[in-house]
Computed example of a mutant assay.
Amino acid sequence: MNLIQFFNKEITFTEEENEVLATAFKEENYAKGTTVIQPHSFSKKVYFIEKGLLRCYYYKDGKDITHFFFDEDTFTAPLNSVFYNKEEPYGWETLEETRLRVIQYADLQELFIKYPSIQRFFFNVSLDILNAFALKLEYLQFHNAEERYTNLLETSPKILLRASLGHIASYLGITQQTLSVIRGKK
């Protein structure tokens, strides 16, 4: 789904608002394996994934850990940079050919002032993203490895086909060996 279709899925924007949004969000294309944001860098951009898959990751004790996956029809932003004016501890990598629509957060704030409907839309998007992170935290804290895998299978089955087993295992907080055992049972 393209950006404008996604915007109008939940709220019907006026022709003017659609035109403003289409112009404000610039298209960026990336090949598979491209680092969009380096860990410990600084970015004030908001991203919409029109096509492809992004992996948000960090390093812990020299290990590459997958924090989150963002696929089509998803908004995301480097929260530490955008909201707290700090470097972003996470890196973002494309796991397949990816098309993003990008806007500077300052430019988006100007749209919020001029078009309250856009601000309302992004408030709802923010709640959806917050909920996704809360659910991931709940599964990491209160569910075993097999339950976490089953949840991923039920909620995001496409990720299992698009990301490597190593990335999936680190996202679930388990070893690749444990993931192989769980997958063997299914």
Rank of each mutant, 00 (worst) to 15 (best):
N2T: 00
I4L: 02
Q5P: 04
Q5Y: 07
F6K: 07
F7L: 06
N8T: 13
K9M: 10
E10T: 13
T12K: 14
T12P: 04
F13S: 12
E16F: 04
E17D: 12
N18K: 13
E19M: 15
V20H: 06
V20R: 10
A24D: 09
A24I: 05
A24T: 14
F25N: 05
K32W: 03
K32E: 12
G33R: 12
V36N: 00
I37R: 12
Q38N: 08
S41L: 09
K44Y: 02
K45R: 14
Y47T: 05
F48I: 02
I49H: 01
E50K: 05
G52N: 03
G52W: 00
L54M: 10
R55Y: 04
R55K: 14
C56H: 11
C56G: 11
C56L: 14
Y58A: 05
D61W: 06
G62W: 04
G62F: 00
D64G: 03
H67T: 12
H67M: 07
F68Y: 10
F68N: 06
F69E: 01
D71P: 01
D71T: 07
E72T: 08
T74L: 07
T74H: 09
F75H: 14
T76S: 13
T76W: 15
A77Q: 13
F83Q: 04
E87L: 11
E87F: 09
E88K: 02
P89S: 04
G91T: 00
W92G: 03
E93C: 03
L95Q: 07
E97W: 09
L100N: 02
V102L: 09
A106D: 15
L108S: 00
L108I: 00
Q109I: 04
Q109F: 02
I113F: 14
K114C: 05
P116A: 12
I118W: 07
Q119A: 12
R120C: 07
R120D: 07
F123L: 10
S126C: 10
S126E: 08
L127V: 13
I129M: 10
I129K: 08
I129E: 10
L130Y: 09
A132V: 06
A132K: 14
A134H: 09
A134S: 12
L135A: 05
K136M: 06
Y139G: 00
Q141P: 00
F142P: 01
F142T: 07
H143Y: 11
N144W: 08
A145Y: 12
E146M: 05
E147A: 08
R148L: 01
R148V: 02
Y149P: 01
T150A: 06
T155P: 03
P157R: 10
K158G: 13
I159L: 15
L160P: 09
L161D: 14
A163V: 14
S164F: 03
G166F: 03
I168P: 04
I168F: 08
A169S: 11
Y171H: 10
Y171K: 07
G173F: 08
G173T: 10
I174A: 08
Q176W: 02
Q176D: 01
Q177I: 14
V181T: 12
V181Y: 07
R183E: 01
K185N: 06
K185H: 08
K186A: 05
